[in-house]
Design a protein around this nucleic acid. Structure first.
Lengths: 203, 203, 203, 203
DNA sequence: TATGAATGAGGCTTCATTCAT
DNA sequence: CATGAATGAAGCCTCATTCAT
């Protein structure tokens, strides 16, 4: 147990140090020596846990996406059986919150990814999220989607994309809040439009 | 003028070489020597045109965003006086097309930006686009927006964000097309919803 | 005794692992950790038996040379009182066989010696061999050497040197066999020439 | 010309520095930084001429063997048409001299080779030498070899091997001289023995 | 003005060795 | 006695940048 625990603590410290360096100074100042130093371990130790620098960055992103996916899955479970607008609202707010609560971390991770083949990571994340949100939307008490897959893809892509773009633009909090509101509105409108078109198809 | 022309050709060659390297092998293989080599000039010459490597990447992105902004501005001018749905459709398709027609270049530039303070670039780009799209929407023959700034911000952020996210997910062309259609639908629905709510407010 | 036995087994395992690594991958992949791993013990244990890496390699060579010396001594004892040509033949064949029967091991040891001050080892080995061969040649029933020391040095150096050089050239087995035959011939001729010159001197 | 000349001077300096380090301190103190330092250039420059450390050592050995091969070829040409014993004497003395005149260099190169796949080098060298010595022996005015290839291989292997072994044993100059004399004797005796056996075959 | 050899700081990584458990 | 995680000095190599030609 002490072994296991210590190892975990070490890895945590390394991750934390990585994020700190990434936020403080930018991706190019991220050296393995510096990470180890700030984490309070020797470089050798770092290399005992990560075979190389890329693996460290990869693992960091993996861990972040893992946490984010869990959070979204929790949100989706909690919303099972609710109305679609409620679901949307919760999904938007959760994701927005997640990306915004530690903006430097978010930015740091976006940057760290630059020289990394993270497509596998992204795909895994996307699949998990898609599964969760699809299940949620399927359980909506007030809607029945003709093409759930398509609707789900659209909503997820729009919401996630919008949040990222809002983030990158560096909107001030006023604009951000307004935008968040408008996004709610837009997604709701989309659902209603779908409803109408599906009724039209049914008739 | 021959001097001018030669210089321009050199700079073009350097940019092209940069993109090629970025495309072929990833950001970490982008060395000034390699860029110069592929551009058919010496490193010294490269440094005659760019004070350092960052400046080169910065200029490359600047040039790309400049072209993209011009394209969007042209689209907006061309759509002046049209119906809002038409405007939306054109805007979405233009942006989507621009990001998709040379996907490796798009990806390369996304990556190149990693260790660059490109916020000024982004801001300039955003301002130009906002001006153009705002003017366009203001000229719509079938709509009159109560809070044009807000609507504009929303649409631009949603559209650009969605396209980027779609791009990053690596959607296959079928899904991409579906998504593009749904995005049209969603934006239209948003406009209609605005209309109704504005009427409601007016009453 | 169980203690003793276990220790010996461990040391054997370490030696074996060392040779395997040396054989498989070349001297630069020979790390203490890797040796321990392959030997099925921990690095700590390895350091219980050898104060440092050099000592391990030194001991390995020592052991090899010890075995080789023993083998040569045995051959020499067995040949006591025989004819000189028989002695030569046996000496050549024994040494050739010893270096050839596990060529990768031979090569591995040659390589391992690179950054080692093995002159003491070599000298000890040389002295033992010289003693044994000198005694053997002195007992030849058909010869009486005027300058036994000189003859012995010559024969031993020529034989050992030739075998090593043949080994390094990577001769195919056909050439190797031919060469071995010629070496017999040459050594015999040498003895006869000595004989004649010694008779000449006597007259 | 100045460019070419400077480059050559630089490479020479690097080689010289490498040999110095190799002789002074042993193979494991041979670091690229140290080589560059002693050669009076920067590491970067070293790496402009040699892609990595191994390549440097390889090139050093290549150059040494090239020079040695040339020297042997010259000796062989000079001896064309002479008597076989003269040839032998010259060959032995040349090789002995070459290996002995700068013993630290010889030793250093023997060691440097440890973690290098120099089989190609050795083979090339062997082929060149074999060609030269074969031609020489074929031209002997007093001998006609039934199996020239075999005789040549034997003589070359014996001579080169003996010299190396003598070298490694660290013989004092008295013993060395004696041994050299005995080697002459032995080789001559070998030739005579061949002669007799060939006559025997002819009869 | 173009060239490209030279520079050298600094990054990544390995591995012999130690020592707390 | 054995273990193996931790250490950190030190090696190899890259690459942005300069400057003599």
């Amino acid at each position: 147990m002490p072994r296991q625990a210590r190892a975990e603590a070490t890895v945590d410290a390394i991750f934390e140090a990585t994020i700190q360096l990434l936020t403080r100074a930018g991706a190019d100042s991220l050296t393995t020596t510096r990470v180890a130093e700030r984490a309070g371990v020797s470089v050798g130790t770092l290399y005992q846990y990560f075979p190389n620098k890329q693996a460290l960055i990869y693992a960091l992103n993996e861990r972040y996406l893992e946490a984010l996916a869990k959070r979204i899955e929790a949100t989706c479970s909690a919303q099972a059986g609710q109305t679609a607008p409620n679901m949307l609202k919760t999904l938007i707010d959760t994701y927005w919150q997640a990306k915004t609560e530690r903006p430097e971390v978010t930015r740091a991770l976006y940057r760290s990814v630059a020289d990394l083949d993270n497509s596998a990571l992204i795909e895994t994340f996307a699949r998990r999220v898609d599964t969760a949100t699809t299940a949620m939307f399927a359980s909506a008490c007030d809607a029945d989607f003709a093409d759930l897959a398509s609707v789900n893809l659209t909503l997820v892509t729009v919401i996630f994309g919008t949040v990222r773009n809002a983030f990158e633009r560096g909107l001030d909090s006023g604009d951000a809040e307004k935008l968040q509101g408008q996004l709610h509105l837009m997604c709701d409108a989309y659902l209603k439009a779908l409803d109408r078109s599906s009724i039209a198809q049914t008739l």
